[in-house]
Amino acid sequence: MQPQPHHAATVGEIIDRLSSCDRNAPFFLAINPEFPHVHFAGEIVTARDGQGGQVVFLGEAEQGEILPPAIAQALTWHPPTVTASLSRLASRRSAGPA
């Protein structure tokens, strides 16, 4: 079976996906499988595409801590052994020099 090509989600699709979530829950972006960190959502900017239709961009405000291993696994970015190694590495870095 061939993987489905990605398409730009519509604003309506994103609203539908988020409608079952707690409105007060923190919202983060998970962006890079090779360097999985939490990213804070930033500004929302609208523009026009080549045909005059509106497009919407959600910017990144800043990068936070390493993405929790369970989230990277749920996104199928890493098998458990890889995310566990990243977590150990992050723990060693945050602990400082030995």
Rank of each mutant, 00 (worst) to 15 (best):
M1I: 07
M1K: 12
M1A: 13
Q2A: 15
Q2C: 14
Q4K: 13
H7I: 03
A8L: 14
A8P: 01
T10L: 11
T10H: 09
T10K: 05
T10A: 07
T10M: 06
V11G: 03
G12F: 01
I14Y: 08
I14P: 07
L18D: 10
L18C: 11
L18Q: 10
S20M: 05
C21D: 10
D22C: 15
R23I: 08
R23V: 09
P26W: 00
F27C: 05
F27V: 14
F27W: 11
F28D: 06
F28S: 01
I31C: 14
I31V: 12
N32K: 03
P33R: 08
E34D: 13
E34Y: 07
F35W: 15
V38I: 12
H39F: 15
F40M: 11
F40K: 14
A41M: 00
A41Q: 00
G42P: 07
G42I: 06
E43T: 10
E43R: 11
V45W: 08
V45H: 07
V45D: 07
G50K: 09
G52V: 04
G53M: 12
G53V: 08
V55A: 03
V56W: 02
V56K: 12
F57P: 00
L58D: 02
E60N: 15
A61L: 06
E62S: 13
E62P: 02
Q63I: 11
E65M: 06
L67E: 00
P69M: 06
P69T: 09
P69C: 09
A70D: 10
Q73E: 14
Q73M: 04
L75Y: 01
T76D: 14
H78P: 04
H78M: 09
P79N: 02
P80C: 00
T81C: 08
V82W: 02
V82R: 02
A84I: 02
A84C: 05
A84M: 15
S85P: 02
L86G: 01
S87N: 10
S87K: 05
S87Y: 04
L89M: 10
L89I: 09
S91Q: 15
R93N: 05
S94W: 13
S94R: 09
A95S: 13
P97I: 05
